[in-house]
Write a protein that binds this DNA or RNA. Sequence first.
DNA 1: GATGTCGATTGACGTGGATCAAACGGCTTT
DNA 2: AAAGCCGTTTGATCCACGTCAATCGACATC
Lengths: 243, 243
Amino acid sequence: MSNAKDISIQQLKTVCSTCSLRELCLPMGLSQDEVDQLDNLVYTRRRLKRGESLYRAGDEFTSLNAVRTGFFKSTVVFEDGRDQVTGFHMPGEVMGLDGIGTERHAVSTIALEDSEVCIIPYSRLEELSHEVRSLQNQFHRMMSREIVRDQGVMMLLGTMRAEERLAAFLLNLSQRFTARGYSASEFHLRMTREEIGSYLGLKLETVSRAFSKFQDQGLIAVQQKHVRIKDAEGLRKLLGREA
Amino acid sequence: MSNAKDISIQQLKTVCSTCSLRELCLPMGLSQDEVDQLDNLVYTRRRLKRGESLYRAGDEFTSLNAVRTGFFKSTVVFEDGRDQVTGFHMPGEVMGLDGIGTERHAVSTIALEDSEVCIIPYSRLEELSHEVRSLQNQFHRMMSREIVRDQGVMMLLGTMRAEERLAAFLLNLSQRFTARGYSASEFHLRMTREEIGSYLGLKLETVSRAFSKFQDQGLIAVQQKHVRIKDAEGLRKLLGREA
DNA sequence: GATGTCGATTGACGTGGATCAAACGGCTTT
DNA sequence: AAAGCCGTTTGATCCACGTCAATCGACATC
C-alpha cells in the first residue's frame, strides 16, 4: 500500500476517464473514447493547503486548473488596493479561463480549504481540442457559460438589494452542491462573511444581518458556517418579487 | 454605380481581408493568408435600424455578429421583469458569445443607431477554427477577454461609488473610441442616461448629477449626448484614490 | 483551564444614492 | 410657429446600507 507501484495505480485511477467528476468537468458530454484521449492531457495534480494560492494576478498563464477536491475563491485586485471576490469554485469547475487572453492571470485564486486540482496544460488542450472536435465544442461551451455566469453576477450587483443577493447566493450554492451529490439543504460555508460580502458587493455586517433576518423568518438555520435551508421556496420568492 | 455588378463588388470589398476593422475584430493578429480564409466564413451582413433588435434572449443561437458600423447595447432580463444593460458594443466588437453554451441567446441585443453587422455562422467558425490554428487561438483569446471584461464590470459594480463608476465608464469609452481612430476627448453618446445608469447600477438621476458635477469641476463639458473630456487625468485620479 | 485571536453578531448613527416631483430643453410632427 | 413628447436636469426628502463600536463565541495554543 506504500510502494511505488501502488502510487502509480493511484494516479491512474484519477485520470479523467475514471474520475467521478467527469460529468461536471471538462469531459462533460464526451464519449468514452474521447475522454480516454483526455487522459493524455490531464496527468498532473497539485495539492494546496488552505490559504495557499494557486496563482496570482499577473502570473504567467500556462494551464487551466480543474478543482478535484476542496474549494477556491478568485479575487480581482484594483490598482488602489481594493479587491473583490469574483467567484467561488467547487469540484469539477475549471479555473483560469481569464488568463488565455493576455497569457497572464487576471485574478488571484486561493484555496479556502485543503484542496487538489488537476492541471490542464493549455497548449496541449489547444492541440487536443484541435483534434477532438467535441472537446473543442465542449471547451467553447464552458467559456460561454462562464460569460453568462458573470453576466448573472452583474445583474445581481446592479439591480438586487442585500437580501435578494444573499438569497440568490444561497440558492446558487445549494444548486451546485446538489449537482455534486451533496445535500441541497444543508452545507458548510467555506468562506467568511467578509468574503461573501465582497462577492455580493456588501459589507460583512450587512451579510450577517441578512443571515440573522433569514433565520428569524424561518427561512434558514445558520450557526457560524453551517447553513441549513428550511424554506427554499421562500428564498426563491424573495428573488422573484416585483422591483 | 447602381448595377448588379457594382453591388457585388461592394460586397467583395467588405470581406474581412479588406475590412478596415480587421485589427480590432475577429481577424486580429492573423496573417494575410489566414484572413483570406475568413472571407469564406463571413459573407453575409445585416442592416438594422435604430431600436431594432439583433436577437432576443431565448432566441436560438446560430451565429456570432461583429459590429461593422453603428452601436449596440445588450441587456439581460430577469424573471420579474427587471433588466440591466450588460454591455455596449462598437465597431469591431463581436456579439453573441453568450449563446454558445446553451445554443440560445442569454441576452437581447439592440441597435442604438442605424447599424450594420457581419454575420459569422457559428458552425462554420468552429469548422474553420478547427483548420486554422491561429483562428482557434484568436477565438479563445476573444472569449477570455470577454470574461476579464465582465470581471472588471463586477468590480465596478461591487466596489465603486457613483462618480467613480461614471469616470471609469467615460474613460473606457474614450479608450475604445481611440482604438478606432476617433477622438479620445470628444464623442457622442449613443445611449440615454437611463441606459448608462442601468449599465452602471445607478439611477438616471444619479448619472445626470454626476455628469453635472464633473462639468462643474471642469473635468468634462457635456451637452446632452455630446461629451468632451477636458481633464482625462483628473478623471483617472477619481478612480485611483484610496477607498 | 486560561489566554489570545479571529470571525460573527448586534446596536447606534451617518450618508450616498434612490425616490418623488417639478421644470426645462431639444426634437419631431403638424 | 405651435404643440407634444422624451430625455435631462435639479431640488427635496427618504431609506438601505455603510460605518463605527462593543460584545460574543469558536477555536487554537500554552
